[in-house]
Nucleic acid binder design. Structure first.
Lengths: 247, 247
DNA sequence: GGCCTCAATTGATCTGGGTCAAGGCATATA
DNA sequence: TATATGCCTTGACCCAGATCAATTGAGGCC
């Protein structure tokens, strides 16, 4: 496999709506078809959804919780290569194996489709293929955006980039609109942040403290973040024009 | 835009063959259609093919030469996010703008299709969309593979990873089959290598010298490389199981 | 030959972030 | 109340790779 993620606009609280989102233009018939091959799966925090190299028998979307895609070297070094948030798509039509470990970072509920029928359906309905192509292109943009972060940014800029992406993704949580302060809870441990950013957890912790001391963010407890000024945060990220990994 | 690259198997010396490669299963009619909207463009080494943010009016494949996708920060730091080798596809059906600078690293010849007609054709022929989806998924895998390189590997491992990818891509150039020594010319300056690997050109140079001193590679001049033992090189890359950026 | 220019090498020094190690602070278990 | 466990913070030190700088070498051109 390889995994695709994409934030589909619209209501993501229930699965059938997501079917519509997967293919906004497809007819009721196709939705029915999708309905008939869907099923739900639950995963606990820390549980591995899919091992790298496994053949995977399903594709699906994350309904709730956070999952992550990680690659690991023999000596244990790991790099997170993608974050899956609710409404993101998992799976690779046309491929058997997974290229990464897919792990539930929090408790996760997924809505799955058996792979074979899904592929059959996709072959019959061009709109689904087009939608998947679009999603994959967005994923590719996001991955490449992240290559700049990993290759060229300082630790402080990396942290600011991650916070800014999460904040943007959770724009709905802003109490006073996108211009006002942003408030959100970090869905990741310091270690997970480090794996995403190509840093150590100690450096993540230090830079979080530094951003706090400098008033770029406010921290309540370890996870609850307030960003008084998004513009300032994005400056810190070294990134005016912007594109988010989570598309 | 965003750009997709993929090494299509088969003869890449002439353009019509590549049309067939874009859609191996499409009928003659479709090839004819593609023929009628194609045209060639030449670019000199160093020339920018497409600026980030530009609307792009074409898609196409690289016929000869090397092009690269780069992202640049305001202060000048740059990261290469993709390499386009002959037979690789450029363009993003369905999107207008480019997200990256596309630059000719050497002299480049491209076979282009005007974007609109290509999209129309794609909408009519599902096989093309499927092929593009596959290519994009490969690109995504490659980009994520590279995230591990950028985030977690040492300078020496990064260099070895790059050499091993180029060597594998040029497997045909091995005089004694894939098991024998590999010989190839580096298509990149030290600086371009550095931009790809998230290093400085000095570090690239030092690590090349080190790999040479340790017998991992032989250097004739600055660009002509012999790899006596590919297994050794891949060990140095910290990468037994393997996936190539250039898919 | 002499003189550019551009790519690459090599040396000397500095520093951001890694590494190792010691707590702190919750929530959980007894 | 004690005790463990998971997550996080902070400090002290070190080193891989960045930075600054000098030099070499291979064409190309007059």
């Amino acid at each position: 496999m390889s995994v695709m993620t994409h934030h589909i606009s619209g209501n993501c609280a229930d699965c059938p709506i997501r079917h519509r989102a997967v293919c906004a233009r497809c007819e009721q018939d196709e939705l029915e078809e999708l309905e008939s091959i869907k099923y739900y799966r639950n995963f606990e925090a820390g549980q591995t959804i899919l091992w790298s190299g496994d053949k995977m028998g399903f594709v699906g979307t994350v309904i709730s919780g956070i999952a992550s895609l990680t690659q690991t070297m023999e000596d244990g070094r790991t790099q997170m290569v993608g974050l899956l948030l609710p409404s993101d798509f998992v799976g690779r039509p046309g491929r058997d194996g997974s290229a990464y470990d897919v792990t539930a970072t929090t408790d996760v509920v997924m809505c799955c489709f058996r792979k074979k029928p899904f592929e059959t359906l996709m072959a019959q309905t061009p709109h689904i293929a087009h939608r998947l192509l679009e999603m994959t292109l967005d994923e590719l943009d996001a991955a490449r955006e992240w290559m700049l972060v990993l290759g060229r940014k300082t630790a402080r800029e990396k942290i600011a980039s991650l916070l800014s992406i999460i904040a943007r993704r959770d724009a709905s949580l802003s109490p006073n609109g996108p211009a006002g302060p942003m408030v959100f809870d970090l869905p990741l441990t310091r270690e997970a942040m480090a794996d995403y950013l190509g840093l150590t957890l100690e450096t993540v912790s230090r830079q979080m403290s530094a951003l706090k001391k400098d008033g770029v963010i406010l921290l309540e407890g370890k996870r609850h973040v307030t960003v008084p000024d998004m513009g300032r945060l994005m400056e810190e990220a070294g990134d005016d024009s912007d594109g988010g990994l989570m598309a």
